[in-house]
Amino acid sequence: MQARHIDHVNLRIPADGVDDAQEFYGEKLGFGIEDAPYVAGDKPFFDVRLSPTAVIHCWPSEEFEPPTATNYDHVAVVVEGSADEIEAELDAAGIEIEKSLDAPLGATGESPAVYVRDPFGYRVELKTAV
């Protein structure tokens, strides 16, 4: 079996966290929000569109437990722009930067990355394209 790419990642969020998730991922980070089937009651989750071939499923849950260092570290998303441009966009959106690294290793090689936390405690690595 030969893998092609990751299709999606599932993240549980608090049942009352839908607006916060959509604001963070959609408005502040600028990713697409696909929620029509969720709003219609046809799916128990909505999607954050990262690219034509990748999404994050956000599953609102009454049993949500914040991620801890023992069960989650981060999800990495390759984005356009330099680290300076990414940091400027995050600053303009009011998102606190947890840390920046010059060249963490990823699937596509080493390149600068900026780390942030979403409203629920998930760390998101925003990695520059190689």
Rank of each mutant, 00 (worst) to 15 (best):
G17F: 07
G17H: 07
G17V: 11
V18C: 09
D19N: 12
D19T: 10
D20F: 03
D20W: 04
A21S: 09
A21Y: 03
A21N: 03
Q22D: 00
E23K: 13
F24A: 12
F24W: 08
G26L: 07
E27R: 13
E27W: 00
L29W: 08
L29H: 09
G30Q: 06
F31A: 08
G32L: 06
G32R: 13
I33K: 03
I33M: 05
E34V: 08
D35V: 01
A36M: 10
A36H: 01
A36V: 14
P37V: 08
P37R: 08
Y38A: 03
Y38M: 12
V39Q: 12
V39R: 15
A40Y: 01
G41P: 05
D42G: 06
D42N: 11
D42I: 06
D42H: 10
K43P: 02
P44S: 02
F45Q: 04
F45D: 06
F46E: 04
F46S: 01
F46K: 01
D47K: 11
D47P: 00
V48S: 04
V48E: 02
R49G: 11
R49E: 15
P52E: 13
P52K: 08
T53R: 06
A54M: 14
A54E: 13
V55Y: 07
V55K: 11
I56Y: 08
I56A: 03
C58M: 15
C58K: 05
W59N: 13
P60E: 08
S61W: 00
E63L: 06
F64P: 01
A69P: 03
A69L: 11
T70M: 09
N71P: 08
Y72K: 09
Y72W: 14
Y72I: 09
H74W: 10
H74Q: 14
V75L: 15
V75H: 12
V78K: 07
V78C: 00
V78Q: 10
V78E: 14
V78Y: 13
V79E: 03
E80R: 15
G81M: 10
G81E: 04
A83H: 00
D84H: 01
D84M: 00
E85S: 09
E85G: 04
I86D: 00
A88W: 02
A88Q: 13
E89R: 15
E89K: 15
E89N: 12
L90E: 00
L90T: 01
D91K: 15
D91C: 02
D91S: 14
D91T: 15
